[in-house]
Design a binder for these strands. Structure first.
Length: 428
DNA sequence: AGCACA
């Protein structure tokens, strides 16, 4: 338990630094003027002006700490405040020890724009709206948004500088069209400069950043080290050790999700050993057990947040379960142990026997045409071979069409998943 | 009027 240094972040007096932070500058302020301002006290070795959203802040770095102290001391007791172009300038020690000069400031034309969204409700502007606005000028590769002292900002990446320039010329200083904003959102205007970036790094698709060149979004492929960034709950709870058992909850369940459907989805990443479904506060949840943690990690990363059916239906939310081995007492339509060749099923004889018989095939197809409905709820799809499936690697497109539109037929011996859902697909 | 493009 190392005690966190409880140093207050806000101090009215910064400790001395060679670097001074200036504010309330006129926006036209130049480096020359900053040097003039500091010259009486020492040698100004670096400056940075036009800082911040309003371009009214600046930094001066002296050669020597004492010179900075001289300047601060002088104006602390002077009756005449420091001024630039007749405007009073406020000085203090910077909280940094040197100016970092990205000497490539805002004039270098590039393919990435730095956009500051200004307005009361600036941060009500979603990344999707930004995407829409900037897409008018060309393909938008990536967008990241962030909140800083400058306000709500975004970096918008185009393929080339020409496209970015046309967007900048058209949009800089303009307001986001009203019809793109929710009713209650006030005017939001855009201030645009070039960014020095050429290629943004977007690790995750999220409400804060998007990579439109990489639709198969979710997370890093490296299953092994999914560095603690597990499901960052709103409260930032990072505890949730990986497990070979996943807990899936299903939102927006417009279609019934059966055991077989779940099996189909999760088997795309590796052998599924057991599944148990249950209702939890009004929703459906399921525990899915893999033989190993790695498989579960891959499946989780690929499936989290995705929908079983197109159109946002049956959205999966996946976390790691605390279980490591499910105890399936009975195979029925809610729970199944795929490692048991022929478990006792008290209720009725299963029509499709012995999963080992015909080298079973896994479900590839989507919920599949349910023409010849075999009304066989409980024992429906035994298609899965026990133990190890032939599907070693994960990462296959687990996304499926809605029940009715995915019409791939099962091959020989194709077992339709039980069609408890009678509902038509969304296309109908 | 309060610290720089994550």
């Amino acid at each position: 338990m190392s005690s966190v240094s409880s140093q207050p972040q806000f101090r009215y007096t910064q400790p001395p630094s060679k670097v001074l932070h200036l504010r309330n500058l006129p926006w036209e302020c130049t480096e020359e003027e900053l040097i003039e301002l500091g010259k009486p006290f020492g040698t100004v070795v670096n400056t940075k002006c036009n800082v911040g959203a309003n371009r009214n802040q600046a930094f001066i770095e002296f050669e020597d700490l004492n010179q900075a102290i001289q300047m601060i001391s002088y104006y602390a007791s002077s009756s005449e405040p420091a001024q630039v172009r007749g405007k009073t300038v406020y000085l203090q020690y910077s909280n940094r020890q040197e100016i970092v000069n990205n000497k490539t400031t805002a004039d270098v034309v590039g393919n990435v724009l730095l956009v500051t969204i200004e307005g009361e409700d600036a941060r009500m502007v979603s990344i999707d709206v930004l995407h829409l606005v900037f897409s008018a000028f060309g393909f938008v590769h990536k967008i990241t948004t962030f909140e800083k002292t400058a306000g709500y900002q975004a970096l918008v990446q185009f393929s080339d500088a020409e496209t970015a320039t046309s967007a900048k010329n058209a949009l800089d200083g303009r307001s986001i069209p009203r019809y793109l904003l929710p009713e209650q959102v006030g005017q939001c205007s855009l201030k645009i400069t070039y960014s020095a970036h050429t290629d943004l790094t977007v690790k995750f698709q999220s409400h804060r950043s998007r990579d439109y060149t990489n639709p198969y979004l979710p997370v890093a492929p490296s299953a092994i080290d999914s560095t603690g960034q597990v499901t960052v709950g709103v409260d930032g709870k990072k505890m949730e050790p990986e497990s070979n058992v996943l807990l899936a909850s299903i939102e927006n369940m417009q279609y019934a999700v059966t055991l077989d459907v779940l099996h189909m989805v999760f088997a795309a990443f590796g052998a599924v050993q057991k599944i148990a479904m249950f209702d939890k506060n009004g929703g459906l949840q399921a525990l899915i057990q893999y033989p190993d943690v790695q498989t579960a990690v891959v499946a989780k990363e690929a499936l989290e947040g995705h929908c079983i059916y197109d159109g946002g239906f049956c959205k999966l939310h996946i976390t790691y379960s605390r279980h490591t081995d499910l105890s399936i007492k009975v195979n029925n339509d809610r729970s199944r142990d795929y490692t048991m060749p022929n478990p006792a099923v008290p209720m009725l004889q299963q029509p499709v026997q012995n999963p080992y018989a015909g080298n079973s095939q896994q479900y590839h197809a989507a919920g599949g045409s349910h023409h010849q409905q075999q009304q066989q709820p409980p024992q429906g799809g035994w298609a899965q071979q026990g133990g190890q499936g032939s599907m070693g690697m994960g990462g296959h497109n687990p996304y499926m069409a809605p029940p009715s539109s995915g019409s791939m037929h099962q091959g020989p011996g194709g077992h339709m998943p039980p069609q408890q859902y009678g509902g038509p697909g969304p296309m109908h």
